[in-house]
């Protein structure tokens, strides 16, 4: 496996990298254009439908609305309590992400850097939890939450806390595994150097390994966040009207008398905007990972 060998002397010269060949440039243009079209098509449908009156949306597709309207963007707040759902989703997803990544960083560090008895068992067991269809442990989990509530008075059922710890474990296994992958690719002489400098293992983790793995941690955080952000099944059982999340709440636009397609689209866009903005910020962070890599 090609791994950075100990050539830590700066070989970087001012020489500009070789200009990419023309074939590469064309491949890049074509492939990325196709991918952009594939990505954009549904997004276009969302945006254009959200600006159409319901009647337009219910008839044959047109690229352009017959009449532009922003009504859907005003109505979304009255059909369902969208703002409440959004806040719930945000609280649940952010908490689950922060906790999940924190727990995963420790576990991944242990697996990547230590050989201890049970290491393999632990990592395989953690992964195996991803293989059980959620539908089956939904009821047992629900029972356990209710029982914990009855015996300790900690209300997990119906509360955000219950959802948070559920989601945090949903993303945990993959987060651990992904982070082990990233940690493994960070040269071990780096932590050794930190240890020699008088840091403990935890110090080495936070001073060396975590900063070097920032891109990986960002990727894992995004994964953990989106897992929590989109989950439908558990949210539909474990929440009530005060804790309901967006993922299930958006279904509220399909009502007994009508399906408000244009409002579904408008609401989806409105709630996704902050997330996309967050991704934009993280994008910079991902690039910042480049410089972090330069420590090597």
């Amino acid at each position: 496996m090609p791994r950075p060998t100990a050539s830590r002397t700066p070989t970087r010269t001012a020489r500009s990298p070789m200009a990419p060949p023309r074939a590469f440039l064309w491949t890049r243009r074509i492939v990325l254009t196709l991918l952009a079209v594939f990505t954009l098509a549904p997004l276009y449908v969302m945006v254009s439908s959200s600006l159409k009156p319901l009647g337009d949306v219910q008839s044959r597709f047109t690229w352009w609305p017959s009449t532009f309207t922003v009504r859907p963007y005003l109505d979304i707040w009255d059909t369902v309590p969208l703002a409440d759902y959004f806040v719930n989703s945000l609280i649940v997803s952010v908490s689950a992400t922060v906790l999940s990544v924190a727990v995963a960083v420790f576990a991944a560090y242990a697996i990547s850097r230590y050989r201890f008895r049970g290491r393999r068992v632990f990592s395989v067991a953690v992964l195996s939890t991803q293989m059980f269809p959620g539908i089956l442990f939904l009821l047992p989990l629900f029972l356990i939450f209710v029982n914990i509530g009855n015996t300790t008075g900690i209300a997990l059922y119906g509360s955000r806390a219950g959802l948070i710890i559920t989601y945090l474990t949903f993303s945990l296994p993959f987060s651990v595994w992904m982070l082990v992958g990233y940690f493994d690719s960070i040269p071990r002489d780096l932590d050794e150097a930190a240890l020699v400098d008088g840091n403990g293992p935890i110090g080495a983790l936070f001073r060396v390994v975590v900063p070097a793995a920032v891109p990986g941690i960002v990727a894992v955080s995004v994964y953990a966040f989106m897992t929590a952000w989109g989950e439908v099944l558990f949210a539909s059982v474990m929440t009530n009207d005060t804790t309901r999340t967006l993922a299930v709440g958006l279904q509220g636009y399909a009502t007994q008398t009508d399906v408000y397609w244009n409002q579904v689209m408008a609401a989806s866009l409105v709630v996704s905007l902050p997330v996309v903005a967050g991704f934009l910020l993280l994008q910079r962070y991902l690039v910042a990972g480049l410089t972090a890599g330069a420590v090597k």
Binding site: T79, P81, T255
Partner: peptide, 9 residues
Amino acid sequence: SNQGAGLEA
């Protein structure tokens, strides 16, 4: 159960 034009309604 939802009977009308939305939960809020």
